[in-house]
């Protein structure tokens, strides 16, 4: 379904719309275009797209917290864009939760809170496990700092970003033993993403 997926592009700049139209169409997507937010909303009803590409002046973090899947800052390469689109499409198709998650060398059993890498059990603390789980459940997608803090430490902890620094540092160290520290990607000022 990846090919032929419907993408709605909302951007007020003509050259940008044209570029995205050409490059995404050439990759086999079904592209529709809108100049303004208002036009975009109308198209949303007409086309029922799988993905919306929306241009914002600045990366709007509130929007991410409100449920956007991902963002890119200008200037970006079309390669990076289509990679992100592929992840988002996969994600949107794959929403149901399995009790056991396997991806490459990583195997997680959510029921018994067990993590194995390359067949070896890895000992994680409860918090480390919860962090990893939150990323795994949104694999490929940014999970904002706020979301993580709220989910794991509760709403009153949303500003204590230093918790994340300390735990991700520990978690990375444990993953590093298996050369996997790179699977957790920091999106500066925004959040974290699992890339596997």
């Amino acid at each position: 379904m990846s090919k032929g997926a419907k993408i709605l592009v909302i951007d007020d700049e003509k050259s940008m719309r044209k570029l995205l139209d050409i490059s995404l169409t050439s990759e086999g997507y079904n592209v529709s275009l809108a100049k303004t937010g208002k036009e975009g909303i109308r198209e949303l009803g007409n086309v029922r797209p799988d993905i919306v590409l929306l241009d914002l002046g600045l990366p709007d973090l509130a929007l991410l917290d409100a449920g956007a899947d991902d963002y890119l800052t200008k200037p970006f390469s079309t390669e990076e864009l289509s990679a992100r689109i592929r992840v988002a499409l996969r994600h949107s198709l794959n929403l149901k939760e399995e009790p056991i998650y396997v991806n490459g060398p990583l195997k997680i059993d959510f029921n018994i809170r067990n993590v194995e890498i390359k067949g070896e059990p890895v000992k994680l603390t409860n918090t480390e496990f919860d962090l990893l789980k939150a990323l795994v459940q949104n694999v490929g997608k940014i999970v904002t700092q706020k979301q993580l803090l709220k989910e794991i430490w509760g709403p009153e902890a949303v500003n204590r970003s230093h918790y994340l620094r300390i735990y991700f540092s520990q978690l990375r160290k444990k993953l590093d033993k298996y050369d996997l520290s790179d699977i957790i990607i920091t999106e500066p000022g925004v959040g974290y993403r699992l890339n596997i």
């Binding site: 620094r165 991700f168 540092s169 990375r172 520290s181 920091t186």
Partner: peptide, 17 residues
């Protein structure tokens, strides 16, 4: 306005990446 607690290691790795 944008200062926050950061981990030095994370900072270095992200910069390189």
């Amino acid at each position: 306005a944008k200062k926050d607690w950061q981990d030095v290691g994370e900072l270095i790795h992200v910069s390189i990446k």
